[in-house]
Design a protein around this nucleic acid. Structure first.
Length: 463
RNA sequence: GGCCUGAUGGCGGAGCGGUUACGCAGCGGAUUGCAAAUCCGUGUAGCCCGGUUCGACUCCGGGUCAGGCCUCCA
């Protein structure tokens, strides 16, 4: 099956051909760990997790190397550490742990590696040195800057010319810059701020150099896929290309010598508005997972195509939960059906290989669930296994169905519900409908939905 | 001002030049002590104006509207 991806740089959907099928590399820009991740941060994590799973399926688990960095050097981290009077690593290790736990709750697999800026300072300094050596960067007043005019490909990713950028510049230009668009590779630290040694004085790296240096050091150039949010195209990814290309010895000025495919996920809005601190509508994953199962959040993030904008609102969550309930319902009815060895249905692979069309995967999952319900007893093991295999590829449907419906109920509640159901069963046997209904009302008050069936009553927690 | 998306039924959201997306909600039926849940069935669409075509939601041109980026940002 041929994988096709929308490449931001080439501006079209292209066949994905890894440089080395035995070693497929992907890098996605990770978090700056000074705060909780919000739901917008989670979209690329989930989207590229699906791609990671697909690549592993296509090329083998061992063949795919996925790196997602942790930025643990940053002004905002410094501010927070300063405010709390602690070392930056107190802040960064705390929020890195929280981040990883939150993303795990969304069924995101751990990336193969999670490089950290603080552990890659040598690589960063080395890449800056290479840029200076190659005539693409210069030191000035303790800073090192990238000379954008030295790289003719600058602007290729975001499709803008240097003139456009200069015309659009609204920021005050530092006097030591040769060109207003030159960006910082290294800057001096103010007293009290964390600092690292370098040939240009003690200081810290600029934001963009961190990623390109970690990529070169941890994955090697060129990588196959570079991903991130739409907003990172400019300036971050544009600058990464400039650095990554120009730092290479005897470089060819080819953008593809840094990353061969560029993918960007669309933005999330909150009730049709931009999510921002000033609007006060920032929704943290950490809080959301207390209200909804991670799987619902995950599937909601996958309900639209990854490049399309996605509006986050309560209806989306409610609809997604019901959809997931429907899929789990099919599995619940087939709880006793054995699972057999199967391949993932072709239609699912096909949908994913078409630029990660998760909405089409959802349609296929519904079809597979229906097929399972309608299958003859003899065919059920195959049908069930196919549904599970398809779910696994997008990271859902892997928990026990009964547990899904009772999810969130603790042991005390479960015991209480079972006792009430037993009492109701007795009342119904005696045709004491008043008592049976009274018990049902009591269960309803506990947010429990009773489902009478031929084999007795079962229950679930209401959404 | 520059660059870039998108506009599909009540809602979310796909594919496709001529035939069912899928899901949620609604409606009808089966089932039920009554309900609920479940199962079966089902109606509703393609921003506007031109063009190409035997035929366009699907291709082309123009317009309108909405959103994003151009500054830290997923």
């Amino acid at each position: 099956m041929k994988l096709r991806l929308s490449d931001t740089l080439k501006r079209q959907k292209v066949d994905f051909v890894p440089k080395n099928p035995q070693r497929v590399t992907m890098y996605v820009c990770g978090p700056t760990v000074y705060n909780y991740a919000h739901i917008g941060n989670a979209r690329p994590v989930v989207v590229f997790d699906v791609l990671f799973r697909l690549l592993r399926h296509l090329y083998g688990e061992e063949a795919v190397i996925y790196a997602r960095n942790i930025t643990d050097v940053d002004d905002k981290i410094n501010q927070k550490a300063m405010a709390e009077g602690v070392d930056i690593d107190v802040i960064t290790s705390k929020f890195a742990d929280i981040y990883n736990a939150d993303m795990r709750a969304l069924n995101a697999l751990e990336p193969t590696i999670q490089p950290r800026v603080t552990q890659n300072m040598n690589a960063i300094v080395a890449q800056i040195a290479a840029l200076i050596r190659n005539g693409h960067a210069y030191a000035a007043e303790g800073h090192v800057l990238f000379d954008v005019e030295s790289y003719k490909g600058y602007g290729a990713l975001s499709n803008r010319s240097l003139d456009d950028m200069i015309a659009g510049a609204r920021v005050e230009v530092a006097p030591y810059k040769k060109n207003p668009q030159d960006f910082v590779l290294w800057k001096p630290s103010k007293p009290g701020e964390p600092k690292w040694p370098s040939p240009w004085g003690e200081g810290r790296p600029g934001w963009h150099i961190e990623c390109s240096a970690m990529i070169e050091a941890n994955l090697g150039l060129p990588i196959d896929i570079h991903g991130g949010g739409h907003d990172l195209i400019f300036p971050h990814h544009e600058n990464e290309i400039a650095q990554g290309v120009c730092a290479q010895h005897g470089h060819s000025h080819q953008e593809e010598s840094y990353a061969r495919y560029w993918m960007h996920n669309g933005f999330l809005t909150m009730y049709a508005e931009k999510m921002s601190k000033s609007l006060g509508n920032v929704l943290l994953v950490h809080d959301l997972i207390k209200e909804f199962p991670g799987e619902v959040i995950r599937l909601a993030l996958l309900s639209a195509h990854y490049r399309a904008p996605l509006d986050w609102n309560n209806d989306l969550l409610v609809q997604t939960r019901k959809r997931l309930d429907g899929l789990y319902e099919a599995l619940r009815k087939a709880a006793d059906v054995p699972v057999v060895e199967v391949t993932v249905p072709e239609a699912v692979i096909e949908a994913l290989c078409d630029d990660l069309s998760t909405p089409r995967v959802l349609a296929e999952l519904s079809a597979l669930a229906t097929a399972l319900e309608k299958a003859s007893e003899a065919d059920k093991p195959l049908a069930k296994s196919q549904l599970l295999a398809a779910g696994a590829l997008v990271g859902i449907l892997q928990q026990e169905a009964e547990g899904w419906f009772k999810g969130g109920a603790d042991d005390d509640l479960s015991a209480k519900v079972e006792a009430l159901l037993e009492a109701r069963k007795t009342a119904r046997a005696e045709k004491n409908w008043a008592e049976a209904d009274r018990i049902r009302n009591e269960l309803t008050a506990l947010n429990v939905e009773v489902m009478d069936g031929p084999a007795g009553a079962t229950w679930k927690l209401k959404a």
